[in-house]
């Protein structure tokens, strides 16, 4: 497989290690009420789709960046890749969260 690194271009997937579903970006607040339930879902439950899947890859033998790769789990076609840091920061911006400006 080849992964289109947003900064480095097409790289062999062997340079990366795989973590799993990109929902792992959305770590719950450990001090919130019912944190136990939220963490159970976060740690253990997966959509596991047969189709488009957003997932985390680490460029371990490369620039050590974490990527969010969008890949079809049936065809292995890769639809895009972004720096996970950018995705995480975006999800923290008020607009993305739907908070009032």
């Amino acid at each position: 497989m080849l992964i289109p690194h947003p900064l480095l271009g097409l790289r062999d997937a062997q340079e990366f290690s795989y973590l799993g579903d990109a929902s792992l970006l959305d770590r719950p607040d450990g001090l919130a009420e019912k944190a136990g339930d939220a963490f159970f879902s976060y740690v253990y439950l997966r959509e596991n789709p047969a189709g488009v899947h957003r997932e985390l890859w680490f460029h371990e033998q490369g620039d050590r960046s974490w990527l969010v790769v969008t890949r079809n789990t049936v065809t292995h076609e890769i639809l895009g890749a972004e720096l996970a840091r950018d995705v995480a920061l975006r999800s923290r911006s008020p607009r993305e969260r739907g908070d009032p400006a």
Partner: peptide
């Protein structure tokens, strides 16, 4: 996951 999703149990502690 595919089959159980049809029963509304798509989220399981399983990856394929």
């Amino acid at each position: 996951s595919r089959v159980m999703a049809q029963a509304g149990m798509g989220q399981l502690p399983i990856e394929s």
